[in-house]
């Protein structure tokens, strides 16, 4: 089963929920857990999980190189480039790599076979373990712009397929998604069995929750809400959820101790072990909800 954690708004507690959830359920020996930090622009889960990283593999895209001894400056490559990344001048060709998506169109279009492709690293996927949890995180190289979805796509190829019929062990993959609603978020939550939306009871939290709900509806992913740093204003979120028939799976009140622990990179279940049961409960609620709706 794949559970992703998303939010729309940044800083609502995605990583907190993802980290504490995986730590709480991995105690159970019948689960084989994987954790993917897909916030490749700003990956933070490792701060809390402190994984042993045993492998680092670069992620690269292919970009064109012109062989000027073959090039006739015919301009077909520039015409084929949907991203306008190539300019063919009288006796020079300029390629703007920051616009290149690595689609290979120019190389196919070249009648002289003058364009080869070389790989360029755009980020790295690091993997290792946290106890028996398999840990995978992606990191975008500084200055790269359009490549987060590529890194996320590569990471998701490592997701373990759900258990074979005879095996009693259940694979659970927890995905920590980036904030926002655009392509990196879609790439992260796509194909999840369930998405937990983490929000806070403020107008910002609500506004961005609504956007995130729209994304999940478009992708047809079942969802539930966790209200983080809750308190007297929770109804701003719960009224909306009631109207939209989205279950509220968990409420975490505003708590200074949790905030201080967070600031030091300490998961909340370590300072307040009763939360461990609450996170297990969160998981069971998701499992139940999926069973009722016949999703699994």
């Amino acid at each position: 089963m794949i559970i992703s954690i998303a939010s729309g708004k940044g800083g609502t507690g995605k990583t907190t929920i993802a980290v504490n959830l995986v730590l709480s359920i991995s105690n159970d020996n019948s689960y084989d857990c994987q954790f993917l930090d897909c916030d490749v622009e700003e990956p933070n889960a490792a701060i809390f999980l402190k994984p042993n990283i045993s492998q680092a593999r670069p992620v690269s895209i292919l970009e064109p190189r012109i062989n000027f001894t073959k090039c006739t400056f015919c301009g077909k490559c520039a015409k084929a480039c949907a991203f306008n990344a190539i300019a063919v001048l009288k006796n020079d060709i300029k390629i703007f790599m920051e616009l290149c998506h690595g689609c290979g169109g120019c190389s196919i279009a070249c009648p002289e076979n003058a364009i080869s492709e070389v790989s360029r690293d755009v980020g790295v996927i690091e993997s290792g373990n946290v106890g028996k949890i398999e840990f995978i995180q992606g990191k975008l190289n500084i200055g790269e712009a359009i490549t987060p979805p590529i890194i996320i796509r590569e990471m998701k190829k490592r997701i373990k397929k759900s258990g074979t019929e005879e095996s009693k062990i259940k694979h659970i993959t927890i995905i920590d998604a980036p904030p926002g609603t655009s392509c990196p978020v879609v790439e992260s939550v796509k194909n999840s069995d369930f998405t937990i939306l983490v929000t806070e009871p403020t107008p910002f939290g609500l506004n961005d929750l609504i956007l995130a709900v729209e994304v999940l509806k478009k992708l047809n992913i079942p969802m539930g809400v966790v209200i983080n740093r809750g308190g007297k204003n929770d109804n701003i979120i719960s009224d909306y959820c009631q109207n939209e028939k989205i279950p509220i799976l968990m409420r975490i009140p505003m708590d200074k101790d949790i905030a201080v622990a967070y600031s030091k990179g300490i998961p909340m279940i370590q300072i307040n072990p009763k939360y461990s049961d609450k996170f297990k409960e969160l998981y069971y609620k998701i499992e139940n909800q999926l069973q009722i709706s016949g999703e699994i």
């Binding site: 520039a78 480039c81 991203f83 306008n84 990344a85 190539i86 300019a87 063919v88 001048l89 300029k94 703007f96 616009l99």
Partner: peptide, 9 residues
């Protein structure tokens, strides 16, 4: 994207 590049050309 790349309007400046193509206009330049």
């Amino acid at each position: 994207g790349g309007a400046g590049i193509q206009s330049g050309q």
